[in-house]
Design a protein around this nucleic acid. Structure first.
Lengths: 343, 343
DNA sequence: CAAACGAAATTAAACGTTTTTATTTTGACA
DNA sequence: TGTCAAAATAAAAACGTTTAATTTCGTTTG
């Protein structure tokens, strides 16, 4: 037996396929009694909407493109990004809707740009979710110019507003620096993501201002930008601990780099809490298992990701982007005193 | 201007849409010269195939469903699964093909079963990639009975053969146990994934046989099954180190649980290399940043994932599943001696 | 009571392909 | 030059849906 279509229901009920279609779409043009008959018949024959027909007719794809920038196969370094959680959060937010998440894995920024250009021009999706934004992001410009629905995970400085979700990096760094300064730290290192990323800039700005507020000098030697791998964290601890006036605190942008920082401590014979401390900001919450556990600003990844999903839905429905902007403040989890016990 | 279709090309060339379609699909029914004209015209007008038309006409979806079982939003525990890499590997393998990866995030086994049932019965995809297989896996049975193309990441015991990719868990555990036994360990703990998972069984079997070969007794108290979170690793070190005859070696199924095991060492005052050692088997390769780094069987995730992608392609093309089965042997990376230096 | 109206249904066209069937063209051969 | 088969192209139908245009029919209205 063939899969039932609206034609099947039409025959079944003696109505025309147009009426059936309208009935199933809750059109006001069809009488409630008729609708009931149609719905009953649909139920009876086990009708399921065939998306291909809809897609061809309406031009809608019912796909949300998730652009995922994952490093190429050659790089086996862990970056501590829980893309899985991010993607499932989005996917779950779309669960009740007819939309599906279509994955576009790209290797780098240029590829993501090309991919987005293609999706937009060929309408391969109805909406796009993009992460790893740059301050001035050409991808955002492309989508804005095409009036294409999109949400970014991360902010930008574009003048035209767009939907975004992000952690409140500014506040997080500000409080983080203030807290360490309070505890007597005068040399605070910032392990930051790649310099071109929007949140790297936000964090750096906040860092500089917070230092100023605390009356501390800014030293470029205490700031590092790069891919947030353990290797990067380790490397910078090795480098910075050799400075004449080494840092007594490291603010790592994620837990992967924090883990690497620990490895650097180990290599240099530094003891956490005596020689220096490590703080992290992340969404993985794995740092509670470090030895010792460290203080972290923690943002459960499902929060921003579900928000991304619901925002892209609302965005595709035409809602104004101004209403779809959220900065989430991660929660401070203090796992160590973070005062140096010189002894 | 409208997006060009084959109709546009037909007008442009004066040919019929049928000929254009055939020409573009390399049909032998069309003269090479004609094909050249069509291709040139297509190029000129910037023609791009509209998938919706194809999908409606052919019934093919050009989607590969990737079933991803991610724990619900309530569980923030890291499980050290690099789904991102897995998904991108698959996605890259499909890059040259017309297929896209469509993501189906599910919360648990039951949901994955229901999802697969739906995909199969409603033909929502042309192929399925499923991970986390059970020994006797009802999802596999459903797909087999429906003659639906699929590849599993993980083995099963189904009699009918199917395409799969997996790490060679049997050999890995066998060698791992033998290596530790050689180094004088008589009490070797196995931190295993959830008992119902196929690879848990494979590993347990291999473990028992390897113990026997080494002349060591099997002690159920040294085996734990559960979700491979850091919490699980920690918990089991706390438990097992309290045994009258505690283990001197822990084989952790992934690096997340190994990290947790370290945390357990820390809590109990155990020193790695003196009181006990930790080994891991994983695809993350983050254990080189542990303090101290530990010995690991390492399988770069892009290998199995790209294989999954190419296998599902070949499977959808009708290739026999027997030809699409691979066990990959992870590489041993010795980062510590793993002999106990009692002292 | 006929005309006009409005609600609710139907008809028909369209979305862009592929594919089956029909038709035309071509070239070989008698 | 005419015939015929083979080759190349064209015509038409179909996939499942939505929607604009049209028809039907009962009700209101002047």
């Amino acid at each position: 037996m063939q899969r039932p279509t609206i034609k099947t229901i039409a025959q079944e009920t003696g109505l025309s396929i147009a009426t059936v279609s309208k009935a199933l779409n809750d059109s006001p043009q069809v009488r409630p009694e008729t609708r009931a008959i149609v719905v009953a018949a649909a139920e009876r024959v086990g009708y399921q909407l065939n998306m291909h027909g809809v897609q061809l007719r309406t031009g809608k794809t019912y796909q949300v493109a998730a652009i995922m920038t994952a490093p190429g196969p050659k790089q086996n370094e862990w970056e501590g990004v829980e893309y899985a959680q991010l993607l499932s959060g989005i996917s779950w937010a779309l669960e009740e809707s007819p939309y599906r998440v279509s994955l576009y894995a790209v290797r780098n920024f240029e590829e993501s740009l090309a991919t987005i250009r293609q999706i937009v021009s060929l309408k391969k999706a109805d909406g796009i979710i993009v992460s790893g934004t740059r301050a001035d992001d050409p991808r955002v410009r492309i989508m804005q110019e095409a009036d294409f629905p999109f949400v970014t995970y991360g902010t930008t400085i574009h003048n035209a507003p767009h939907a975004y979700v992000d952690a409140d990096n500014e506040q997080m760094i500000r409080l983080s620096v203030a807290r360490l300064a309070e505890r007597g730290h005068r040399r605070i290192a910032l392990i930051n993501p790649m310099a071109e990323l929007s949140y790297a800039i936000t964090r750096l700005d906040a860092y500089r201002r917070a230092l100023e507020t605390a009356g501390l000098a800014f030293d470029p030697a205490l700031v590092a930008h790069g891919r947030l791998t353990p290797a990067f964290g380790r490397e910078n601890v090795l480098l910075m601990s050799d400075l004449p006036d080494p840092p007594t605190a490291y603010i790592c942008a994620n837990e992967a780099s924090a883990l690497g920082a620990f490895s650097g401590f180990h290599a240099r014979g530094l003891v956490h809490g005596r020689d220096a401390v490590i703080n992290a900001t992340d969404d993985l919450n794995v740092s509670q298992y470090f030895a010792p556990p460290i203080t972290t600003y923690f943002l459960p990844i499902h929060e921003p990701s579900e928000l991304l999903g619901s925002y892209i839905l609302r965005c595709m429905e035409g809602e104004a982007p101004e209403a779809l902007q959220t900065l989430i403040m991660p929660k401070l989890i203090e796992r160590s005193d973070d005062r140096l016990s010189k002894g």
